[in-house]
């Protein structure tokens, strides 16, 4: 078996013909995403397993105490590790990062880190000396298309799930004590907004030469492509939005040109799904919180009266 299996002409043609008839091979609508199956760890904070169709991802958030950058003494450190091993697909090389992998890592980084979705100033402990260093590890286990959307969603979910240990500052600001999670309740991270990435793939089933924009354009757009759809696509765009209708990042790297009003159209259409996914994160996290509250009987530890 060769490492780089290409999709056969038969499969490709079958797929395009199905698209022309308005059908997707897994019976989804063109603008429908696969439903995510979420599993949050009950024993530790910050570990999430996410199944998105057949794409599988395990995300872990960890925190260490370190020294901040000299020119940013008030900010904590935050990084996202996004290496893809050949476990996900033999096509991915263990030793070298292919262009694909680098693009995936960059888009996720732009969407989450550079958009300041995590409040870095809230990570400061002692200005100029000690700050929290948050690391998100994305471990892709199985590849069935769309690592970007799944990675971004998984990372945001794990960041919501994670709680860092409580800290006390002693000795007039000289020393800190890190409290064990059994001793004091850990503290959640301060997340300013939730970016959600959505990837649209384009196909031009008509004649390649007449790819003119105007009344004749009949490009087909699919949301959340799986592996076959990704291999056959001729272009893609990643739109990252949050619930406040803010455009976080936009990425179109080559591929067939699309018309500009389609771009706006897709952004509008995406809002509904962005809302749904953001709600899903909040719902899953609050359900998990509630279960934990009941299980550990935290009501007994509450000091204030229940109003």
């Amino acid at each position: 078996m060769s490492r780089n299996t290409e999709i056969s002409t038969n499969e490709r043609t079958y797929f395009i013909e199905a698209l022309k008839c308005g059908l997707r091979l897994d019976s989804r609508r063109f603008d429908e995403i696969r439903e995510p199956q979420i599993s949050l760890s009950k024993t530790e904070f910050g570990y999430v397993e996410l199944d998105w169709g057949l794409t599988k991802l395990a995300v872990r958030v960890s925190a260490q105490i370190g020294k901040p950058y000299e020119d940013r003494p008030f900010e904590g450190l935050f990084q996202i590790n996004c290496e893809i091993s050949s476990m996900a697909w033999a096509h991915f090389d263990n030793s070298k990062n292919s262009n694909e992998e680098i693009l995936i890592a960059r888009i996720i980084e732009k969407a989450i880190r550079r958009s300041n979705s995590l409040d870095l100033e809230a990570l400061c402990i002692i200005a100029g000396e000690k700050v929290w260093n948050i690391t998100v590890d994305l471990n892709f286990l199985n590849f069935d298309g769309n690592f970007v959307d799944v990675g971004c969603f998984g990372a945001m979910l794990a960041l919501h799930h994670f709680k860092k240990p409580d800290i006390s500052i002693v000795n007039g600001g000289e020393d800190i004590i890190v409290h064990d999670i059994d001793e004091r309740q850990p503290v959640p991270l301060s997340i300013l907004h939730v970016p959600i990435c959505l990837t649209y793939s384009f196909y031009n089933p008509g004649n390649k030469e007449s790819n003119l924009k105007g009344e004749d354009d009949d490009e087909i757009y699919l949301l959340d492509a799986n592996l076959i759809e990704e291999q056959v696509r001729e272009g893609s765009i990643v739109v990252t939005l949050n619930k406040n209708r803010e455009l976080i990042q936009l990425s179109k790297n080559g591929g067939i040109p699309i018309s500009a009003n389609v771009l706006l159209d897709l952004s509008f259409k995406s809002m509904k799904i962005v809302d749904e996914l953001t709600e899903l994160i909040k719902k899953v996290i609050s359900k998990h919180e509630k279960e934990r509250y009941e299980e550990l009987n935290l009501k007994m530890l509450e000091v204030g009266a229940d109003r």
Partner: peptide, 9 residues
């Protein structure tokens, strides 16, 4: 060296 509140571990 950071002194942790929990000396047991």
């Amino acid at each position: 060296v950071n002194r942790s509140a929990n000396a047991a571990t």
